[in-house]
C-alpha cells in the first residue's frame, strides 16, 4: 500500500505550503487560512501514522486537533473582525502600532 514516508512527505508539503501562506500573504484572513492548511498537514501526519501503527490514537489526536482549531479559529476570526471594524484593518501592515520606538529609544 502507501508507504508511511509518502504520506508524511505529502503532509510535510501541506504544512510548508500553509507556512508559506502565513509568511507571504499579508491579508489577515489569508494568514488564518494558511494556519488551517498547516493544521491539516499535521492531521494528515497523524492519520497516516495511525494507519501505520494500527491504533486509534492518531485519530483521537486529529479529533482534538479539529476541536482546538475550531475554537482557535473562532476567537481569531472575531478578533480580526474587531480589527476590521475599528481600524478597517484587513492587512497586517495596519497592525504595527505596537513596536519598539527607535527614534526615541537611543539616548
Amino acid at each position: 500500500m502507501i508507504p508511511l514516508n509518502h504520506s508524511l512527505a505529502i503532509a510535510a508539503l501541506l504544512f510548508v505550503l500553509g507556512l508559506a501562506v502565513v509568511l507571504l500573504r499579508r491579508e489577515l484572513l489569508f494568514i488564518l487560512m494558511g494556519l488551517e492548511v498547516m493544521f491539516n498537514g499535521v492531521a494528515l501526519t497523524a492519520i497516516a501514522a495511525g494507519q501505520h501503527w494500527g491504533n486509534a490514537d492518531g485519530q483521537v489526536l486529529t479529533i482534538m486537533l479539529m476541536a482546538v482549531t475550531a475554537a482557535e479559529i473562532v476567537v481569531a476570526l472575531i478578533l480580526i473582525w474587531l480589527a476590521f471594524d475599528r481600524y478597517k484593518a484587513v492587512r497586517v501592515e495596519a497592525l504595527t502600532r505596537l513596536r519598539d520606538d527607535n527614534k526615541e529609544g537611543v539616548p
Partner: peptide
C-alpha cells in the same frame, strides 16, 4: 552594544509576518 541594540530593536517592528518568519 549600541549597534546590537539598535539592530535588534529595529527587528521589533510590530510586523506580524516578520515575527512568523523569525519563528520559522
Amino acid at each position: 552594544l549600541q549597534i546590537g541594540y539598535s539592530r535588534l530593536s529595529a527587528t521589533q517592528n510590530g510586523f506580524l509576518s516578520r515575527y512568523a518568519l523569525m519563528i520559522s
